[in-house]
Amino acid sequence: MPPFDSLIGVLASRSFSTIWFWLALIGMWSAAGRNVLGVPVEVLARARTALRRDAPDAPEAIALMDWLSLNLPRWRLGPREGAVFLGLTSFGLTSLAVLGFGFGLELAQALTLVGVPFWLLFWLRVRLARRLAPILADAQQGVLPLPDAVAGTVRHMVRHRMLHMLLSVAAVLVTLLWGMLWMLIRPFGF
Rank of each mutant, 00 (worst) to 15 (best):
F91R: 09
T89M: 13
P117I: 04
G33P: 02
G33H: 11
R52K: 14
F103Y: 10
F118N: 07
A32R: 10
G78Y: 03
N71R: 15
E106N: 04
S69F: 02
G87F: 10
A61V: 00
L64S: 05
Q109M: 14
A55H: 03
W119L: 05
L86F: 14
G102A: 08
L120N: 07
G82A: 09
L107E: 03
A97E: 04
R48A: 08
G38A: 01
G102K: 07
V39M: 03
L86V: 05
W29D: 07
E106T: 01
L68V: 05
D66K: 15
R52T: 03
L44P: 03
L77F: 04
L51R: 01
V41D: 13
S90M: 12
Q109P: 02
A97I: 07
V126W: 06
F122G: 00
A45H: 06
L77H: 06
F122E: 06
L111I: 09
D66L: 13
D57S: 11
A58F: 01
P40M: 04
V36C: 14
D66W: 08
A32V: 03
W29S: 05
A32H: 10
R53S: 08
S90N: 14
A47D: 00
P59M: 05
F91W: 14
R125T: 08
A55E: 13
A45E: 13
G38V: 00
V39D: 00
T49P: 00
P56C: 03
L99A: 13
L86I: 06
F91S: 11
D54M: 07
L93N: 05
L99I: 09
E60C: 01
W29F: 14
V43T: 15
T112C: 04
T89E: 14
G33D: 13
N35V: 01
G38C: 01
L77R: 14
P79D: 11
G38R: 04
R46T: 02
E106M: 05
L107S: 09
G38K: 02
L88N: 06
G104R: 09
A63E: 15
G27K: 09
E81P: 04
F91K: 06
R74H: 14
G78H: 07
E106G: 00
D66Q: 15
D57W: 05
L99M: 13
P73A: 12
F122N: 10
W67Q: 15
V114L: 11
G104H: 08
R52M: 06
A97L: 12
S69R: 15
L105Y: 10
G87M: 10
A63W: 02
L113G: 01
W29Y: 09
V114K: 04
D54L: 08
T89P: 01
F101D: 02
F85G: 08
R46G: 00
R125W: 05
I26L: 12
P73N: 14
N35K: 10
P73E: 11
Q109C: 09
L99Y: 02
F91M: 13
L70W: 12
A97Q: 06
W75E: 04
F122C: 08
V126G: 06
I62K: 11
L93K: 07
L72K: 00
A61M: 00
M28Q: 09
L64V: 04
F85D: 11
L86Q: 12
P56K: 02
E81N: 12
L88A: 10
E60K: 05
P117G: 06
G78C: 07
W67V: 00
L70A: 15
L68C: 07
V116P: 02
R53H: 12
E106Q: 12
F85I: 11
F91A: 13
T112E: 01
R46E: 00
